[in-house]
Amino acid sequence: MPTSRSTRIVLYVYGILVIAFLYLPLVSVSFASVSKARYLSFPIRRYSTKWYGEALKSSTVSELVSTSLTIAVLVTVISVVIAFFGALAFARYDWRHRTLFQKFILLPIFFPQTVLGLALLMWFNSLGIIPSWKTAVVAHLVWIAPIATLIVAIRAYSFDPALEEAARDMGAGTLSILREITLPLLAPGLVSAGLFAFLLSWGNFPLSLFTTGADSTLPEWLYAKMVSGYSPLVPTLGVMSVVGSFLLIFTALALAWLVRANREARAAQQ
């Protein structure tokens, strides 16, 4: 159906408003990050990249980044592994309590994260485990692994079970089927699940707040500095964190585009 002129105008205006609402706050933070002033104030009088230099030199910052990164990387790897097997149980195999499993595995996604964080903290305490970045990994996993599972399950639903049967019929054992058929077919789902897991863990505040103990992640530190003892590094680190996330997403998109272009180029050669 061709869209009329007035519909198009409404759609454009709507689109611009949505983008403005979503991104204007980020833009103002990035302005704040290049202000020379020690405290957050608008309008900005003098611009400077001084705080970026400070951030890169600061040992606090590198410690924060390394804690956040360690947690995010571990969460990513573990959730992708859990998601792979979880998605097969979720979508590929028919078994007796599958629908119950499907409901239970999705439930943690809808828990309020603060409640989940608090509950886990109490649980760690009663088990005598001292909270640290390691317990935060566990906490993140409780929330993120189900999301990753769901993402891989969507991919698993879309592939024909006859493919695995055909491979078996032609002589492939369980391991060969996994390596030659199941893994390659689920690969796009695993990559997006990994990306989601990393970004959700990297930016997570409520779960980390309760479960990192003496360690601190980047979002926790940003919050703490806003509440008391403001540091001019807050907007700087905020922007660096967002830019890092965007870079990751764009890298993934670029890779997907490259793979597709390469495939089409090979097909065009014939």
Binding site: D160, L163, E165, A166, A167, D169, M170, A172, P184
Partner: peptide, 28 residues
């Protein structure tokens, strides 16, 4: 099934979408 000397052409054909024609044929 994987040890029987029989083979089936499926209703959906079950061609592996991530492999090209040649890789599909040489799979066995």
């Amino acid at each position: 099934a994987n040890l029987r000397p029989t083979c089936m052409v499926f209703q959906s054909l079950a061609l592996f979408p991530h492999m090209n024609v040649g890789q599909n044929i040489e799979f066995p």
